[in-house]
Design a protein around this nucleic acid. Structure first.
Length: 511
RNA sequence: GGCGGUGUAGCUCAGCGGUAGAGCAGGGGAAUCAUAAUCCCUUGGUCGGCGGUUCAAAUCCGUCCACCGCUACCA
């Protein structure tokens, strides 16, 4: 049986339209999922929407809609985004699904049965808009006398009964776990932040609310609904069949990788692991917090009106160019800037000129001067060996980079090989060899095709559609495109299809 | 305030104890198979400032400056 690999995106909160940040997490997760499949894993890839909470209830009310209808509609836009980004997800989960209520309640009961939940009271200054409590000291007063949160949201003093999770009891175990597992939280800087946070005394977590109804009811106490985060985090278990630990997909637990935005790291690196410890379940192997995107140097915001729908970028530049750009432009974990000039530069230079043109010049030469079939290979020259050196270890390098979610390192390594390919063809000049040494010409072309095969195979997770076409042109059978198949080679004489350009240059006027 | 991080060529960044690197941008040349694409050569940096350790420091230590992140329930 193939080894299991479980990767998740966060479930996206349904109180706004999908933007480039959502697309980014989705695409990164998709690349991981596709790469692991190529590498022989049985992959479970989960994404979906987070649909409970007071904010959603209120937004639905404002829209004059029933919360479920409201949520159905917004969730559908995220599902549409997932399709538009080409996601190969196994499931799209929604927290309003019946199975999810069951899972959340089962987790609650498990915690309760083991004495990790108690009823207490919560009081303080609460801002509905932020769904957050604030300390008195953080508040400011508006001219009208209304107390305001630091975010500017109005607050009111509320007191309500609440169930608490004994999170404080797990503080030492969590610290020990993080220290014993250096790769559990990434990147390093985020891990430091979490450890820094844990140097302070952890308090218990308020895990129920009584002020609104739109949530999973607390078992045995209908006055309460679960705190949205408790419900949300449980989605990672729900999809695998929890609480049925004999369900076929349960073997995917624990997750290999939770991909999250840096703003929700604490929920995944503190709350979630302690909840799992309390429930007696194994912890995820890794939580990676990635950065945010700015747009042309500006923070993305509704008021600036610079929020970009990723689907518009797809229609302008193509899905694969967008996927490539997002993972190539900036180290994962850093913040990045989306700029029109930047994506055009990447598209034209690296995709069209470097890679697309290398494939095109090689394959069209084969079509015109080598009978349109896989050319004959020859004994390796020093130049051949030098070129192949850039490719021989590439699968291992890429796999290792992706295990660290270093997408840009993986792509950089692949591009070293691509550039070497262009240097090689210039230096070997098959157009000169054509008359003087036809056999050598064939050997040169064959080697280039072999190089392109490795490159295209490794790039499939990043640009599935384009690379599928490239592999078609290279004569690679559909069932010979995984990493293991790289050991095989296309026999000389195999007919190759007529080549055509994979990455057209982007010309501003023609758009 | 506390904790952490960053500061290296015009731009984005790699290097993290042994004579300063990559890509892009700039300059010059070659080639003409190819998507006017490619290849080669090249200009350019007192590696934030100051002090220290060392035979030797972007690389270790101290200090200062600038910017950024985290600092308890916010998807």
């Amino acid at each position: 049986m193939k080894p299991a690999y479980y990767i998740t995106t966060p479930i996206f909160y349904v109180n706004g339209a999908p933007h480039i940040g959502h697309a980014y997490t989705m695409i990164a997760a998709d690349v991981m999922a596709r790469f692991k499949r190529l590498d022989g894993y049985d992959v479970f890839f989960l994404t979906g929407t987070d649909e409970h909470g007071q904010k959603v209830e209120k937004a639905a009310q404002d829209a004059g809609q029933d919360p479920q209808a409201f949520t159905d509609q917004i969730s559908a836009t995220f599902l549409d985004l997932a399709r538009a980004m080409g996601l190969s997800n196994t499931q799209f989960i929604r927290t309003t699904e019946e199975r999810h209520k069951r899972a959340s309640q089962a987790l609650w009961q498990r915690l309760q049965a083991d004495g990790h939940i108690y009823l207490g009271g919560y009081e303080g200054w609460y801002a509905i808009r932020d769904e957050a409590f604030y300390d008195e000291g953080e508040l400011t007063v508006s001219p009208s006398g209304q107390k305001l949160a630091p975010t500017g949201a109005p607050v009111e003093f509320v007191t309500e009964p609440s169930y608490f999770f004994r999170m404080s009891a797990f503080q030492e175990r969590l610290i020990a776990y993080i220290e014993a597992n250096p790769d559990f939280i990434a990147p390093q800087a985020r891990r430091n932040e979490v450890l820094g946070f844990l140097r302070n005394k952890l308090t218990d977590l308020s895990i129920s609310r009584t002020g609104f109804r739109w949530g999973v009811p607390v078992p045995g106490d209908d006055a309460h609904v679960m705190y949205v985060w408790l419900d949300a985090l449980t989605n990672y278990l729900t999809a695998l069949g929890y609480p049925d630990e004999t369900a076929p997909d349960w073997r995917f637990w624990p997750a290999d990788l939770h991909l999250v935005g840096k703003d929700i790291l604490r929920f995944h690196a503190v709350y979630w692991p302690t909840l799992l410890m309390a429930a007696g379940l194994p912890l995820p192997k890794r939580v990676y917090a990635h950065g945010w995107w700015t747009i042309e140097g500006e923070k993305m915001s509704k008021s600036l009106g610079n929020v970009i729908d990723p689907r518009e970028l797809v229609s302008a530049f193509g899905l694969d160019a967008l996927r490539f750009f997002l993972l190539r432009e900036v180290p994962f974990g850093n913040d990045g800037d989306y700029g029109r000039a930047a994506i055009v530069r990447r598209l034209n230079i690296e995709l069209a000129n470097d890679l697309g043109n290398l494939a095109q010049r090689t394959l069209s030469f084969v079509a015109k001067n080598a009978g349109g079939v896989m050319p004959g290979r020859g004994a390796a020259t020093t130049a051949d060996t030098a070129l192949w050196a850039h490719v021989a270890n590439l699968p291992g390098i890429v796999a290792a980079a992706l295990d660290r979610q270093a997408f840009n390192d993986a792509l950089a390594a692949i591009w070293v090989a691509v550039r070497a390919g262009n240097g090689y063809i210039d230096q070997q000049a098959p157009w000169s060899l054509r008359k003087t040494a036809p056999e050598r010409m064939e050997a040169v072309l064959a080697l280039l095709i072999d190089v392109l095969r490795v490159v295209a195979t490794l790039l499939q997770p990043f640009m599935p559609d384009s690379m599928s076409r490239m592999l078609d042109q290279l004569g690679i059978a559909a069932d010979a495109r995984d990493l293991a198949s790289l050991a095989m080679s296309v026999p000389s004489g195999t007919a190759l299809p007529q080549p055509s350009g994979i990455f057209p240059r982007f010309v501003e006027d023609a758009a």
